[in-house]
Design a protein around this nucleic acid. Structure first.
Lengths: 196, 196, 196, 196
DNA sequence: AATGAATGAGACTTCATTCAT
DNA sequence: TATGAATGAAGTCTCATTCAT
């Protein structure tokens, strides 16, 4: 008996996700350019032709991976939608970033490698630049609210610290004391706000 | 009559440097794998054949670029060779790192992109891993000497901060207030050492 | 619907053989190094890419050609597997060699050219040296059994004669009286055994 | 003081010979196509440019090597110029061939490899075919004079034997008992002439 | 939906040859 | 005479993509 439309859709969705996951794994491990579609198809257990049935091109696979990763990050960072960052929400944001990376280090390794290359970075800026700016503005406001004498400067230092710490987590070997780094970083963020 | 040995040496030296500079520019901009030798040769204004007259392979060009960049950094970090880091030397190290990156941002962009790719990163670890470790040990000792209650934790946070700040400089557009970031970062480093 | 496994296997088998045959022809005619993969592909009526779909490298094509040729020769030389060469078997061996060459002169021309080149010859010695030695030992025993006063010397002369005659057949133009050479050579082999 | 014309000529001659010798060595060892002009020039201790000062092309070097080798063989085979081969002259011819190969095995290895390739073989046939035929006719007459019942057949067998034996010498490792092979072959030649 | 044979552009690399000096 | 930097065609090989089945 033939399958229903829903079953077909479900199959399509699963196969597509399988290809995306496999591609992410290989791209992160060996780099986008050094990974061939043959490898992706083989490791995913599908034919090359099928992969092109789901995706227009290798580049489209990458785009979709990036988009999914971004969305997952920003959805975690929801902030009760009032546009204001409380102290708890800030801490939650920091800690949640560590958690997100720990849960999907492959993606972030790939992402880190990619934003270093201008051709890819540019197209990403077009797509995600706005959202990034919104976040920075909210952080700025938060630091002001905390009584900072130099909000702009503090924001630079704090975001540098967080970026650096996350980078360490991303590239660190598995046995790195991630939890300790998370604690020390969170705590340091508050200490770095220059109160009067 | 053929040219003298000196003349040939001079030609070789200049052309080799031209190719290295061109390759660095393109590698940094588009990535190592996405840059072809044809592009490098064309932009450098030489034939592909000549490029292979000076370098065994594309990989060797990359290796030479990396080696030169590393050496330039570590030579700046000389520390009067006594194996101990003074307060001034530490501050000089931080500030000099900002300066080095400002002077050769292309290289550091390339370097950052490269360490994210496992295939290339491994061979670099073999070559430069030792020197990195020495530096970390000296920093650890310095933080102890400054009276830290948690040297290991502080080192993690401080090196994260510096890494993050340098990363910001590397990927930031030209108009970023680098000097301010340098000052704030340096100052923050000292503040982050947890005294008893 | 995709083709069945059998259909794919059949396609692969035929295309692979086509490429092997074409390569043998060109290698034999112009030499291995002087023949390009483009020539092979063009003459076979396939793309270069397809050729590399079937063979890892140009060298692998040569290896497969050599292996096939060798196996076909040694399979003809079965000798009822008792390890002893009778008079009839000896004669059959000589005559069969002429026959084999006549049937596949291209291969033997290629083979002759190849064993003259040290780089290729070495890897062949590793693979086929053992079997050659076994044959020489059996021939030596045969000559002894025939009552030779100087088995070692006779073996040298006889194998030289056969080699030379086969070489003549290999390089001779088509109109050469091969059958006559075969008869005379076979007969001479027996006459050359120095009886007491 | 400038050198005289004779001195220049002498230098030219020596340099040219040096290049020829070096090329022969490398061609014989690695094959014509697998040897580059750079290798030849480097091993000869001259520049590439100079090599092209003496020879039009790589091919011309090969041609000259072949020509020199041939001439040296045929000059040894002088036969007192009366067009008739005596018994002693025949034996001398055989033994001299072994001697010639022993003295210049490199050349003969190269030569053997080359005649297997039709493109080169053809141009050689044009140049040296006549002389070869003359020799074959003289050998034919000699065998007749020796009382052969089947001069044509005997010639085929004898020339096969000699060719095969020489081939063995050419490709044999250094420790092969060449003198024994020479003796046995010479003796066998006479025994192979089918007397009535 | 699914397969993998097939293509062709383009990657890296080599090397015979030229030429300014 | 002599050099070696420089060229460009050609070689080996890879891989994203297409398409008949």
């Amino acid at each position: 008996m033939p399958r229903s439309q829903e079953q077909y859709d479900e199959i399509r969705k699963q196969k597509k996700q399988l290809i995306l996951d496999t591609a992410l794994e290989l791209f992160a491990e060996n780099g986008f350019h050094a990974t061939s579609m043959s490898q992706v198809a083989k490791k995913a257990g599908v034919s090359k032709g099928l992969a092109y049935n789901y995706f227009e091109s290798k580049q489209e696979i990458l785009d979709e991976i990036i988009k999914t990763g971004f969305d997952s990050i920003y959805s975690h960072f929801d902030l009760n939608q009032d546009g204001i960052l409380s102290r708890d929400e800030f801490e939650h944001f920091i800690r949640n970033s560590f958690k997100a990376i720990g849960e999907n280090r492959k993606f972030w390794k790939l992402y880190s490698a990619i934003i270093m290359q201008s051709d890819i970075a540019e197209s990403m800026m077009e797509k995600y630049g706005d959202r990034s700016q919104t976040i920075m503005q909210m952080l700025n406001q938060f630091i002001k609210n905390m009584g900072s004498k130099d909000p702009e400067g503090d924001l630079m230092v704090i975001s540098s610290l967080v970026k650096g710490a996350l980078l360490v987590v991303i590239s660190a070997p598995a046995f790195f004391p991630v939890k300790q780094l998370e604690n020390k970083t969170t705590e340091a963020c508050f200490r770095l706000i220059t109160t009067k």
